[in-house]
Amino acid sequence: MAAASAIKAIHQTMLRAAQPARFVELSGMLIPWVAALGAAMFVAGLVDGLALSPPDYQQGETVRIMYMHVPAAWMGLFVYALVAGLGGLGLVGGHPLAFAAARAAAPLGAMFTAVCLITGSLWGKPMWGAWWVWDARLTSMLLLLFLYFGHIALSRAFDDPRRGDKAAAVLGLVGCVNLPIVKFSVDWWNTLHQPASVMKLGGPAIDPSMLWPLLLMAAAFKLIFFALWLVRTRTEVVGARLRAAASRSRMEGER
């Protein structure tokens, strides 16, 4: 009983925080702290990844590209799941903040996916001997980038922003099938890309001296994303208010 009422209280608090006016105020307080913590983690990850951590026994110094590449890949997948979830929330619940948050997150997810693809290419050329191959992992990751592009385009394609949001939400949900394909492509099919090193059964196949910079960078990317996402959602909310005020004053002018 106590748990149920606690959940209800948390839910009410979250609903209150998700009211657009309250959200702008709350996010304004949160953003500087999240951004500062993210920047600090980023610097720590850079120092550990570029200076303190050792070279790899096979790849030498080139292993350091991983500390950009892998966190960016995780963010690409995570943000897509977030965008799809927010789209579903918007479709079912009709909360205006859900669509605004999805619109704010999608370009950031595309950015992380692009970082993943470009840094991966820069690793592939010296290590594999090819900038790009059409194996299942690389191809599904490129598809993820195009799904992001589709989402961004659709959400801005209609004069009525609600229609665009709904169309983009449907695309986002359908595109979710690509997420397990990206993750498990290296296990289901023979790929040139190596299988998972960190998130695998039996624990990471990666030395702690190399796992640390990876996790630091992953935390930094998460925090930086969160800060930018809050800023962009706030921009969407105030932008919607501006549009509403503009149409109101136009109506008053006509009267």
Binding site: T62, I65, M68, I118, T119, L122, W123, P126
Partner: peptide, 8 residues
């Protein structure tokens, strides 16, 4: 290649 990756 490493510098390019971090630069990007």
């Amino acid at each position: 290649y490493i510098l390019a990756a971090y630069g990007i």
